[in-house]
């Protein structure tokens, strides 16, 4: 299996350069890829908006003006704040977008990261050891998958006090099986390979083997799934807000803005479309970065990123593929 080779080759292929040099190479690689660059810039921008947005626009985002509701976008008649129009209460859509980025990220990011980290480590562990550990882990995943997430959410609403931490918990638990199953599958396949056996006979401890040999092969797929999970989590979060868990108006998140704008999609499309676009752009940026990282992290693939971006790229590729 191809992945095996990568796992085998990696130690030999890439003699560990000093951390400083490695960092410099990564930067160079990144700068060479315009799309990945753009993705990083967008993500940095979203991050910055989340950091300082609420301080700068917090007041503007909640200021209602019932005499100027549903103003269409791309007009400066009401000032730059209304460049993206106003919502059904006359608030600036632009300011709300910026301010909402904080809540959105502070829910989506932890939810995705927790499910990714817990799911992948658990899955690799289960797949590596096989036997009862694997069996129990997979049945637990089956059980979680069989529960409607909404039921969990409603229970949380009734039993615990609603808070952002609870949404994160519900979302993370619901998504853990996805990573758990994917990581287990690949890890189980890998552990039967020769090089893992070899490492074992040399007395390498299992966590070390998982970290060095299993993780590099398993993680790229999981990163791809995780980056696309962003949008899913952002949109699901809004349906939980609808039940009264977590983010409540006048707090705002992109998901909640999309959900509220849904009612007026035909008469004031901008209210739902701009936050929706924000979700799409952020997710796509994360995916582009994930797919770049996948190439950059794979020693066997990294050369593709070092090629000059020109028409020759394709030719070079073909040549390489057809010896």
């Amino acid at each position: 299996m191809s992945t095996t080779r990568a796992g085998l080759d990696s130690p030999a292929d890439a003699p560990d350069p000093g951390p400083a040099i490695r960092r410099a190479t990564w930067w160079r690689l990144l700068l060479r890829d315009r799309f990945a660059c753009l993705a990083v810039v967008i993500l940095l921008f979203v991050g910055a908006a989340a950091l300082v947005g609420p301080m700068l626009f917090g007041d503007l985002a909640t200021r209602q003006n019932l005499r100027a509701v549903n103003r269409p976008p791309f007009s400066l008649d009401d000032g730059w704040a209304f460049l993206l129009g106003s919502d059904s209460l006359g608030r600036s859509v632009l300011a709300r977008l910026v301010v909402a980025s904080r809540t959105t990220l502070s829910v989506a990011l932890p939810a995705v990261v927790i499910s990714l980290v817990v799911g992948s480590i658990w899955g690799m562990w289960a797949g590596f050891h096989r036997g009862w550990r694997e069996n129990i882990s997979m049945r637990v995943a089956d059980v979680i998958l069989s529960f409607p997430a909404l039921l969990l959410a409603v229970v949380v609403l009734y039993v615990f006090s609603p808070s952002a931490a609870n949404i994160i918990l519900v979302l993370a638990i619901a998504r853990i099986p996805i990573y758990l199953r994917a990581a287990r599958a690949e890890s189980a396949e890998l552990q039967s390979r020769l090089f893992v056996d070899a490492a074992r006979t040399f007395g390498t401890r299992s966590w070390a083997i998982i970290g060095r040999h299993v993780a590099p092969t398993v993680l790229p797929t999981l990163f791809t799934v995780a980056s696309l999970d962003f949008c899913f989590v952002m949109l699901t979060e809004s349906s939980l807000s609808f039940l009264g868990i977590g983010i409540q108006p006048p707090d705002m998140s992109w998901g909640l803005m999309v959900a509220q704008g849904r009612q007026v999609l035909q008469s004031a499309w901008w209210i739902a479309v701009f936050p929706g676009l924000a979700i799409v752009v952020t997710t796509v940026s994360a995916t582009v970065l994930a797919s770049w990282a996948r190439l950059a992290m794979d020693p066997g693939q990294r050369w593709r990123l070092t090629l000059p971006r020109s028409r020759r790229a394709n030719k070079a590729l073909v040549k390489e593929v057809r010896p």
């Binding site: 739902a272 797919s291 990123l305 590729l317």
Partner: peptide
């Protein structure tokens, strides 16, 4: 990383992340 790859990836991820 070819144009075809970019277009295919971009379109499919954009579509997948829309509400």
């Amino acid at each position: 990383n070819s144009v075809a790859d970019r277009v295919a990836s971009f379109t499919s991820t954009t579509a997948a992340s829309m509400p």
